[in-house]
Amino acid sequence: MTWSWEYHPDEQHVAAGAPPALLAEVASRADELVRAAEARYLDGTTHQGPGEGLRTIAVADGFFAYFVVPRQQRVYVCQLTSL
């Protein structure tokens, strides 16, 4: 298993109607979050305890909420807000 990111519960639910510029920025920042999580949790599948909890990141056209699940080696983007 390798680290990646995805929309939760799915892209249609989270990203429907979002401007393309916001989606591109979210994808770029989510890729950065994946690299950071991979470095922090060298073997996420063996992680004990809770993840990091829900966090938000501001981007050029809005912000998004995400959470990290180390044992699944995933960053989940769960909400987008366009400004």
Score class of each variant (00 low, 15 high):
Gln79Met: 13
Ser82Thr: 11
Ala30Cys: 00
Gly53Asn: 03
Ala27His: 08
Arg35Phe: 07
Val14Thr: 11
Ile57Pro: 00
Gln79Gly: 04
Ala65Val: 03
Glu25Leu: 10
Arg35Pro: 01
His13Trp: 13
Val68Leu: 02
Ala60Tyr: 01
Glu38Ile: 03
Tyr7Pro: 06
Arg40Ser: 10
Gly44Ile: 07
Thr46His: 07
Glu38Ser: 14
Asp43Tyr: 07
Met1His: 10
Val77Arg: 04
Pro50Ser: 13
Thr81Asn: 13
Ser28Asn: 10
Pro9Cys: 06
Trp3Thr: 09
Thr81Arg: 12
Val68Glu: 02
Ala36Gly: 05
Pro70Ala: 02
Met1Ala: 13
Asp43Asn: 14
Ala16Met: 04
Ser82Asn: 07
Ala39Gly: 08
Phe67Ile: 00
Ala27Leu: 02
Leu83Lys: 12
Leu54Ile: 08
Arg40Val: 05
Ser28Gly: 15
Gly17Ala: 10
Ala30Pro: 00
Asp61Lys: 15
Gln12Trp: 06
Tyr7Arg: 08
Leu42Thr: 15
Ala18Trp: 01
Val14Glu: 10
Gly53Met: 04
Asp10Arg: 08
Gln48Asn: 10
Ser4Val: 01
Glu25Asp: 15
Phe63Tyr: 14
Phe67His: 08
Glu38Asn: 11
Ala16Asp: 08
Thr45Tyr: 04
Glu52Asp: 15
Glu32Arg: 09
Arg55His: 13
Arg71Lys: 07
Ala60His: 06
Ala60Gln: 12
Glu32Leu: 11
Asp31Gln: 11
Gly62Gln: 01
Ala15Gly: 05
Asp31Val: 01
Glu52Asn: 13
Tyr76His: 11
Phe67Asp: 03
Val75Phe: 02
Asp31His: 07
Gly49Asp: 04
Ala24Tyr: 01
